[in-house]
Simulated scan of single mutants.
Amino acid sequence: MDGSDVNGSGRRLPDGYELREGTPSVAAFIRLRRAAGMADRSREAVERGLPNTTYGVHVVGGRRDHAVGMARIVGDGGSVFQVSDMAVAEPHQGQGIGTAMMDALVAWLHGHAPDGGYVNLFADVDGFYERWGFERSAPASNGMWIRTDSL
Rank of each mutant, 00 (worst) to 15 (best):
S4D: 08
D5V: 03
N7V: 05
N7I: 14
G8H: 00
G8F: 00
G8I: 05
G10D: 04
R11I: 04
R11S: 13
R12F: 06
P14G: 14
P14F: 02
L19C: 11
L19T: 15
E21N: 04
T23A: 14
P24R: 10
A28K: 02
F29L: 02
F29C: 07
R31H: 13
R31T: 09
R34Q: 14
A35M: 07
A35I: 11
A35Q: 10
M38R: 11
M38W: 15
M38C: 07
A39C: 08
R41M: 13
R43N: 07
P51H: 00
P51W: 00
N52T: 15
N52Y: 00
N52I: 05
T54R: 05
T54C: 08
T54A: 09
Y55K: 14
Y55D: 04
Y55M: 14
V57N: 01
V57A: 07
V57I: 15
H58P: 08
H58G: 08
H58N: 12
V59C: 03
V60L: 01
G61R: 05
G61D: 05
G62Y: 13
G62T: 10
R63H: 06
R64T: 09
D65C: 03
H66A: 11
V68F: 02
V68A: 05
G69L: 01
G69R: 02
M70V: 06
M70L: 07
A71E: 10
R72I: 12
G75C: 01
D76C: 12
G77L: 05
G77S: 04
V80C: 08
F81L: 02
F81N: 02
Q82L: 13
V83P: 04
S84P: 06
M86V: 15
M86D: 04
M86P: 10
A89P: 09
E90H: 04
P91A: 06
P91D: 13
P91M: 10
H92F: 06
H92L: 06
Q93D: 02
G94C: 02
Q95N: 02
Q95D: 01
I97F: 04
G98I: 13
M101I: 15
A104D: 14
L105A: 12
V106N: 08
V106C: 11
L109C: 12
H110P: 03
H110N: 06
G111Q: 13
G111E: 11
H112Q: 11
A113P: 06
G116L: 07
G116D: 09
G117L: 04
Y118R: 05
Y118N: 05
N120A: 12
A123Q: 05
D126E: 13
D126G: 03
F128E: 03
G133D: 13
F134Q: 07
E135M: 09
E135Q: 12
A138C: 03
S141P: 02
S141T: 14
S141K: 11
S141V: 14
G143C: 08
M144K: 04
M144N: 03
I146S: 07
T148Q: 10
D149A: 15
S150G: 08
L151F: 15
L151T: 12
